[in-house]
Design a protein around this nucleic acid. Sequence first.
DNA 1: CTAATTTCTTATCATAGGTCAAGTTTAATA
DNA 2: TATTAAACTTGACCTATGATAAGAAATTAG
Lengths: 194, 194
Amino acid sequence: MLKKESKVHTIFKNVSFSTDEVAKIEAHFHRVCYRKGDVLLRAKDVVSDQYYVETGCLRVFYSDDSGREHTVQFAIEDWWLSDYTAFFTSDPSIMTIECIQSAVLYRVSKEDLDQLYVEIPQLERFYRKKLEIAYSVLQKRILGCLYKTTKEKYLDFTLLYPNVEKCVKNYHIASYLGVTTETLSRIRKEIAQG
Amino acid sequence: MLKKESKVHTIFKNVSFSTDEVAKIEAHFHRVCYRKGDVLLRAKDVVSDQYYVETGCLRVFYSDDSGREHTVQFAIEDWWLSDYTAFFTSDPSIMTIECIQSAVLYRVSKEDLDQLYVEIPQLERFYRKKLEIAYSVLQKRILGCLYKTTKEKYLDFTLLYPNVEKCVKNYHIASYLGVTTETLSRIRKEIAQG
DNA sequence: CTAATTTCTTATCATAGGTCAAGTTTAATA
DNA sequence: TATTAAACTTGACCTATGATAAGAAATTAG
């Protein structure tokens, strides 16, 4: 029987690790499952983990003072998620993470990751590059906020998250775009009518 | 006479490098000066450098199809700047970088930096952490775009860039907030009147 | 110091999107 | 399948901000 491929090769595509390094990494990534409606993280929790999504769909949102929810990111297959601001700064969470569709995730703690960075420079490089891409994506979104119409932002959303639209509620998308469900409804109608 | 402190210690605060490492880093950082009005980078240029600001004030902006400018960041003393999306992805620039107040910068190329990352893991760590903070800042700005009033966003701006307001034009700030100068004018009036 | 140019403010009007409310469709549950 | 609840759509009205224009203030150049 063939030796099972490590999940590490899936998670860290295009990075070559030694067998020893793969073992070290594997030891710190924990497979966890969640079901629709589960809450992985609540505002004010301490955030010591981040997650890699194998399957499922989740969203990270902020609830403002008047109770309105604002979605900062979705995560489906092959995405990462956390309340990164809290994860990076060690401040308490301001986000909530909710499971929208049953998910299989790999969890890793900040502490373990910091340790791995020292032992495996390749790994730190991977995360640096991942952050570079993430930074670019956020900057593009900000630019969109500055000058694009809601319709354009909606179309950008469908490109960035091609498979998310199917599995999330309308109001999830609206809260990502920063508009009301009513407005999104009108925009969809407009797009449908050409 | 005392040996002059290396600029490396100023740029990479709180990181300990060996004398040899300092020399290596120093060899790749080039002091450059710009004057008010100078353009460091034009849209469509290849972006091979990023800059550390010793003194001065600059801004990075995107010009949309109808010629309107949208400021993605300002940079004053101790900030870094580039068209990071282009810098990270090697795509041609979509941003323009303009000098608002005479500036002294330290320039480093992507190529040299990539080399230094391999030689000095401490340096890669510094930039990873810098990116983590930058990511948090951008996410906070996005969150602001999703639910804050223009007035609140303006006040956030004054907190994030406490000394920038003095040296930039009103329309620079407006283009950072994603509103017209007229709107910013009204908001300032409103704030002044209590 | 004065003139010219740029920037900022104020006013009027137009519009995208918010709020509230009602009705329709879809999904969950008995 | 029927009932209930959740999600979505549509309409009427309101508000913040954009567009345009004109004048005031500040900056730069002669």
